[in-house]
């Protein structure tokens, strides 16, 4: 465990060194990230300029969802996307070999080897949005709310991580899967709104089939004291279940690795 923490720190350090190699790119990425976060907030403000409530959520409650959306978007951009891109590329060109040659868990090595700083701007922006929304609501937040918030948040992170990893893992069979990860992006965009803003079948799909609801809405509900036991159970089930599934799929995929070219 200690070894893996130390490795993670080293990976982050080496990634930061790489980012600093290209100054102009670094600045451009940071600016774009902030802009993108701004757009997310504006979209939700626009929706609420037409209506007071969205799926039973007030503007400030809705902003908590947006804040979580932006923060996770930033973390994905920083910690997941760079690794997914390297993985898909590595499978196509065969440099994934080097990951398999190392005496370190290959899934860990694949998912945490690279990070980029650009998403950290979004992450910070997301946290700011949540704090502003909470202070405008002026509600007391109990210890239980904070605890369930953290639990559902960790589960949400696991769901996001596992889904993207599974999509990328399919590259072991299909090789070129850049569009699969685009599909995740498009689905994740719906997580910007509380899931109750959607009706009937769509809502059901976003809760049960593609667990978008558990990524942003459910953690927001936990923080706002709107969570019930069933949702908490669902969050745990999806978080742990999908993680286990992604590990199983990964193991299966390694058997299919064909190591391109010589």
């Amino acid at each position: 465990m200690l070894k893996y923490l130390r490795l993670f720190a080293l990976f982050v350090k080496s990634s930061i060194l790489m980012e600093l190699e290209y100054r102009a790119n670094f600045i451009a990425q940071g600016t774009l990230g902030t802009l993108y976060a701004g757009i997310s907030v504006v979209t939700v403000l626009l929706v609420f300029s037409q209506t007071d409530r969205l799926g039973g959520w007030s503007l400030d409650q809705g902003l908590v969802v947006v804040g979580i959306f932006i923060a996770f978007d930033g973390l994905t951009e920083s910690f997941i996307q760079p690794n997914i891109r390297k993985l898909i590329d590595g499978i196509r060109t065969g440099t994934f070999d080097f990951t398999l040659l190392k005496p370190v868990d290959s899934q860990f090595m694949t998912m945490f080897r690279y990070m980029r700083l650009n998403g950290l701007m979004d992450f910070a922006a997301g946290v700011v949005v949540i704090v502003i929304a909470l202070s405008r609501l002026g509600l007391p937040v109990s210890a239980l709310q904070v605890l369930t918030f953290l639990v559902t948040l960790v589960m949400a992170a696991l769901i996001i991580y596992a889904l993207q990893l599974m999509l990328a893992t399919s590259a072991f069979w299909f090789v070129k899967v850049d569009n699969f990860t685009e599909a995740f992006r498009a689905l994740y965009d719906t997580a910007r709104y509380p899931v109750s803003a959607f009706r009937g079948l769509t809502r059901l799909t976003l809760t049960v089939i593609v667990p978008i609801a558990f990524m942003t809405t459910v953690p927001a509900q936990a923080l706002l004291g709107m969570l019930d036991g069933a949702l908490l159970a669902g969050s745990l089930a999806f978080g742990l279940g999908l993680t286990a599934l992604s590990v199983a799929l990964w193991r299966r995929a390694l058997r299919s690795y064909s190591s391109a070219s010589s």
């Binding site: 130390r6 490795l7 080293l10 065969g94």
Partner: peptide, 21 residues
């Protein structure tokens, strides 16, 4: 035909990662 060295960094950075790995 394949390289493990980090393209954008000095080789010693890859060495340090292998040292930890």
């Amino acid at each position: 035909q394949k390289q493990q060295l980090l393209w954008d960094l000095p080789a010693v950075e890859t060495f340090l990662i292998n040292k930890a790995v």
